[in-house]
Amino acid sequence: MKLSLGPVLYYWTREALLEFYAGIADSGVDIVYLGEVVCSRRHNLRQDDWLGLARDLSASGKQVVLSSQALIESESDLKALRRIAANGDFTVEANEMGAVRLLSGRVPFVAGPHLNVYNNETLAWFAELGATRFVLPLELSCDTLRELQAARPAGMQTEVFAYGRMPLAFSARCFTARHHNLPKDDCQFRCLDDADGLALRTRDKDEFLTLNGIQTQSALVYDLSESLEELRGLEVDVVRLSPQSKNMLPIIESFRERCAGRPGAPLDGLRVAPPCNGYWYGAPGMEYRT
């Protein structure tokens, strides 16, 4: 199984992003997904910067994939999307159907986690459209994955989101701006304050969700590090780790070891929050089973 690093879902400073990816260049991940998936207003790295980073990481031996924005609303969003789709050098991860239209029949692409590939028939259609890898939607279980794998078209790789706070929802509204009583159009980029998102707690102080601009994430960290043998048994090709601001390199190292069948370092103390894995077992996503 290969290890991939998903796109950075938070808004970090330019320096923080460049430093993070400098570390990734020497890390044990095989595939790196790059680009801004959440919010078109975030611009600390521009498209050319992402492409430069893609070339650097590629030169370091990483397979680079450019991830497209998950919610496309405006002509300027479409313009940026067309540039990514036509980049000519790197594979693109399509995160909504507009991107699929621009890629299908032209180049092979990755069907991202937000495309709702829930069943065998839809997976077969994506294979015909030119997808060579798909990312299992987060809320699906190992039982559903087993059925998809049994019917998987030839040449289709399977990737599973296996570590990180889960992107659970997208909205037109920016919840970070709302929290700061700012209009979305003049958000003052307050999401820069929250390197791992803004904690939303219940009124009895349970850590419940994480606000990340227009995206809502789980507070808990999805963690399939104890299920990697099962993933291998299901012939999963790629295991995705979603970036957090700290400890990412030791987390990658631990997964690397575990993928090689060795006991990796414990992840307690490395995660930004306690783990969950309910979705994998067909249970509420927030649950954790050992």
Binding site: E139, F170, S171, T216, G285
Partner: peptide, 21 residues
């Protein structure tokens, strides 16, 4: 719905059942 329809797993995160599933 304040979330993009068809893209929201909040309900399954808490209860195991969502609009999609």
């Amino acid at each position: 719905c304040v979330m993009v329809e068809g893209r929201c797993a909040l309900s399954s995160y808490v209860t195991g059942e969502s609009p999609n599933t």
